[in-house]
Amino acid sequence: MRFSIGLVAALLLATPAIAADTATLEANKKTVVEFYEKGLNQKDFDAAAKYFGPRYVQHNPTAPDGIEGFKKFITFLREKFPDSHSEIKKVFADGDYVILHVHAVREKGTRGNAIVDIFKLENGKIVEHWDVNQPIPEKAANENGMF
C-alpha cells in the first residue's frame, strides 16, 4: 500500500488535534461527574459551584434558572430528601456536551427515576443543563431494564 507524502503529513498533523479533543472530552466528563457528586449526592452547593461558568441556563421548565436556582434546588434536596442518591450509570461526551444516564432515588426503598442529564460546557465550565426524567415502573413491558 502506498501513501502520498501529503496524506502522511495530514495524518501526522491531525494526531495532536485528536489527542487534544480526547483530553478535552475526558476533562469535560470529569468536571460534570464531580459536579454531580458534589451537588446532587453530597448536596454541597459551595463545592459544586466551582464547576459553573459565568452563567447557568436551566432548560428544565420546573426548575428555577441560574446558579441561584441550582442553589435553591440543593437546599430543597437537603431539606426534603436528605437521603437521596443518584448513581451515574453511563457518561457520554460530544464536543462541549456531556450526557449522563442516571438512576436517581430520592427516598430509600423506592424504585426511583431514570434520568438523562445533558450539560453544556464552555472553557471547561458548566453553563447549561437539560434533563429528561422517567419514573421506573413496578412492572416493565419487557425484560431489558432501563440501564
Rank of each mutant, 00 (worst) to 15 (best):
Q134F: 00
P135K: 05
N133F: 04
L77I: 10
H103C: 09
M1H: 15
D96H: 10
P82V: 04
N41S: 09
G124Y: 07
L11D: 10
P61V: 12
L40E: 03
H59Q: 01
V91L: 02
A9Q: 03
L7M: 10
H85Q: 08
V33A: 13
G109L: 13
G112V: 02
G39M: 08
E128R: 01
R2N: 11
G95T: 05
E79H: 00
V102D: 04
F45K: 13
A10M: 13
I136R: 01
H129F: 06
H103W: 15
A49D: 14
G145P: 00
I99A: 13
E122S: 12
G39W: 02
I99D: 07
I126G: 04
F35E: 13
G39T: 02
S86C: 10
L77K: 09
G6W: 11
N113A: 04
R106D: 08
F73D: 13
K89F: 01
K90G: 06
D96S: 08
L25S: 09
G66R: 14
K71S: 09
D94E: 11
A10D: 10
I18P: 03
R106A: 07
R106G: 05
A48E: 00
V33S: 12
G124S: 10
A93Q: 07
T31W: 02
L11C: 14
L77M: 15
P82A: 11
L121W: 00
A140N: 10
Q42H: 09
N144P: 09
G145C: 08
T75Y: 03
L40F: 03
K139P: 02
F147I: 06
D65G: 06
D83C: 09
L13G: 13
W130F: 12
